[in-house]
């Protein structure tokens, strides 16, 4: 659990297609910059679960209004990395985080950072669907209601500040965005736990969209969906990228290739091996291991 570990693992890695070491590859793409400002900027991020070093010295910049895919074999730390971006790892007792993540140039690991505000701006869809045991409508409007953007209830009604119409509109818009509206429009007051697994996952996406975040973190949002719903989600992601910054974890290479602008490849051990334009990663990766992984020879 020392900080020198990343260096040692890096040095023992294989060579690239061009005969370079991983380290030289990395030196190449760390300079990878985009036109414009990085929305999220990660610098030397390390995460330990107890003695288990799950993320090793990761640095990357995520551009605004784009889709960034995170790929890599199971257990390599994609979810862990994603959770670092809105400090959800703080909620895990065993986790220890070191390094820096900046959102629009502001350090989110600052001790004065406002977690509530951060998570309003950086929304998240979890790997397994987790709707609340409430009605579909209440699931969607939960976030805005708690933020005070939507007022409901006796007091609001008495003071004439009842936002029921806004709520109805928000619920409809969010559900339509998540491609769920047609299936549930006539049972918005039913309990969300009565939905199928795939429907629940889309509900969670709609719920995350309803709070209108700037960045949306998605952990395999399509893993429980059929091809039609998946393609709807993919369309949604592409569409979202116009206004939002999307970071998406996926196990599906074609999906990553289809929807993302840039792709980060994590390999076992929690290292970020290569990060570049998606086309480059899939057509001409610098690292031999990445080429093996994306062509299915390894991982």
């Amino acid at each position: 659990m020392t900080d020198t570990e990343p260096a040692s693992t890096a040095s023992q890695t294989t060579t690239t297609t061009a005969g370079e070491t991983d380290e030289e590859v990395r030196a190449e793409w760390t300079d990878y910059r985009f036109d414009g400002q990085a929305k999220l900027s990660v610098e030397n991020l390390n995460v330990w679960y107890g003695d288990d070093h799950a993320i090793k010295d990761v640095s990357m910049d995520i551009p605004e209004n784009s889709v960034t895919a995170l790929i890599g074999p199971s257990g390599c730390g994609k979810s862990t990395f994603l959770r670092c971006l809105n400090r959800m790892n703080d909620r895990i007792k065993a986790a220890r985080i070191d390094g820096s993540v900046e959102l629009d140039g502001m350090e989110i690991y600052d001790s004065n950072a406002n977690l509530v505000e951060l998570r309003k701006r950086v929304g998240m869809v979890f790997q397994s669907p987790n709707p609340f045991p409430k009605s579909i409508r209440d699931n969607i409007s939960y976030g805005p209601r708690k933020h005070g953007d939507i007022n409901k209830g006796l007091l609001a009604r008495l003071f004439g500040r009842d936002d029921t119409a806004e709520e109805t509109e928000l619920v409809e818009r969010s559900l339509k965005q998540a491609a769920l509206w047609d299936e549930v429009s006539d049972r918005l007051d039913d309990n969300a736990l009565g939905l199928s697994g795939g429907q629940q996952q889309r509900l969670c996406i709609a719920r995350a969209l309803a709070t209108d975040p700037e960045v949306i973190l998605m952990d395999e949002p399509a893993s429980a969906l059929d091809p039609i719903a998946t393609s709807k989600i993919e369309d949604l992601v592409t569409e979202l990228a116009e206004d939002y910054t999307v970071v998406i974890v996926t196990h599906n290479m074609q999906q990553a290739a289809r929807i993302s602008d840039q792709t980060a490849v994590f390999l076992t051990g929690g290292e970020l091996v290569e990060y570049d334009d998606t086309d480059k990663i899939f057509e001409n990766p610098a690292s031999q291991r990445v080429e093996d992984y994306v062509t299915g020879k390894f991982g």
Binding site: R91, E117, R119, G123, M124, F126, N130, K146, R207
Partner: peptide
């Protein structure tokens, strides 16, 4: 705990 995580991720105290 999923309920707590979901709520926290929505920026709810």
């Amino acid at each position: 705990d999923e309920y707590r995580d979901a709520s926290a991720a929505l920026g709810v105290s």
